[in-house]
Write a protein that binds this DNA or RNA. Structure first.
Ligand SMILES: [Mn+2]
Ligand SMILES: [Mn+2]
Ligand SMILES: [Mn+2]
Ligand SMILES: [Mn+2]
Lengths: 217, 217
DNA sequence: AGTTAAATTTAGGTATACCTAAATTTATTT
DNA sequence: AAATAAATTTAGGTATACCTAAATTTAACT
């Protein structure tokens, strides 16, 4: 069994690598808020355990086994987030910290029970896809709302879960998964956009718009 | 915040002390399956932290603060056990290990939500009382079934959760909380008893009988 | 009371996972 | 091509929580 910290490293290496390919000591250090020296040590340990390969001074890459473990943790994290929202009625901005700890102590039996209780959900409360038990992950097509042209109507399929305050704000202006949004106007001076949600007009900053992912409707 | 291991020590000291009063290094060592030397060290640390008082070579006693912490962990453990059974449909013999880990990472907010979702339950799935949030614990009156006289009918109010195999067996012969049991006969040679549950006659060993707690009906 | 036995504590050591500071390697300037 | 800067690794050290073996204290026998 991998330790709790090993699991956190693997999960975050996986996440970084699906964005950038190569994962470096410093990118991990930034993400985990752990000193580069400590990250370097842990990488050596993980390489010995066979969950990743390390080219010194260059970067790391997960092995097949490492990828499987990472996806399993991500699955547990997202299932648990879904459970917190659907069953315990947490808000989507309250769940990440809870899931961050729980993903490591969730037994396979509990994973099973929760998956079943939720009816095998495909995404978590932020719209992130839940990997299958054998590590398959299909990302639904979507693009950031910042790319949407004025005049079009889109449906929200995912909101970045990276900032809990932003999640709370975004919910407060009526944005939720599957909600339809009509883009009325795009401001050229600051790239913000005027949108209509539930018949309310709201201005959305470019930062927010780039964290909301939508599909055309 | 107390560490996970500190919490385990406090919880088990509380449990031992409600049975025996004084808790010794060796009784804790037995219960936690940790060497006496390690227990002795940890006791010193907990005494410094102020959660217990230690009379060297004599034993330990929880302070008010220690007792509060212990009861809080017990509350989380039992609420979580109840949740596993009521919501996720685990069996009562599968839940202790899960709760043993979960009691430490359950936030106060989650404790609240689960308590609410369950309608403020008074006992866990084994009939053990759930302490209130401010540390009150009322033990319902009950006596071991081994003390029941032949001819009387009793209701099950608690089953010792100390052995998961026993829990499974006991369930398999139809015993559950609130179930009525009629004691037909007590065998003098081995102290086993012949009882009637749901119109089935079953023989119950003295060991089992002393782990089932009942009230008169 | 003196000896032996049991319980407890202390001493010395291990593994995990972190840290800062120093050394090394790689990348970027001039 | 050097020199400087940045990234990375190694060295040396900390805290937690465990261990075995040795020392100490308390309890139990003759
Ligand atoms: Mn985590
Ligand atoms: Mn999420
Ligand atoms: Mn525990
Ligand atoms: Mn229980």
């Amino acid at each position: 069994m991998a330790s709790e910290q090993s699991e956190n490293y693997l999960k975050n290496i996986y996440k970084l690598s699906s964005g950038e390919g190569k994962v470096t000591t410093s990118s991990l250090s930034d993400k985990l808020q752990i000193s580069p020296a400590s990250v370097s040590e842990m990488i050596k340990k993980l390489a010995e355990e066979g969950t990743l390969t390390h080219t010194p001074y260059k970067g790391v890459e997960l092995t097949e086994e490492g990828k499987k473990l990472a996806l399993r943790i991500i699955r547990k994290h997202r299932l648990w987030e879904m459970f917190l929202v659907e069953v315990l009625h947490f808000r989507w901005d309250e769940i990440d910290d809870e899931a961050e700890r729980f993903e490591h102590i969730m037994s396979d039996k509990m994973e099973e029970k929760i998956d079943h209780a939720l009816g095998h959900p495909l995404t978590d409360p932020h719209g992130d896809p839940i990997p299958t038990k054998d590590g398959e992950l299909k990302c639904p097509m979507s693009h950031p709302m910042s790319d949407v042209r004025a005049g079009s109507t889109v449906r929200v399929v995912r909101v970045s879960d990276s900032n809990s305050e932003m999640l709370q704000y975004v919910a407060s202006i009526g944005i939720a998964l599957n909600k339809e949004i009509h883009v009325k106007q795009k401001m050229s001076f600051d790239n913000s956009m005027l949108v209509k949600i539930d018949n309310n007009e709201v201005n959305i900053s470019s930062t927010i718009a780039s964290n909301i992912f939508v599909e055309n409707v």
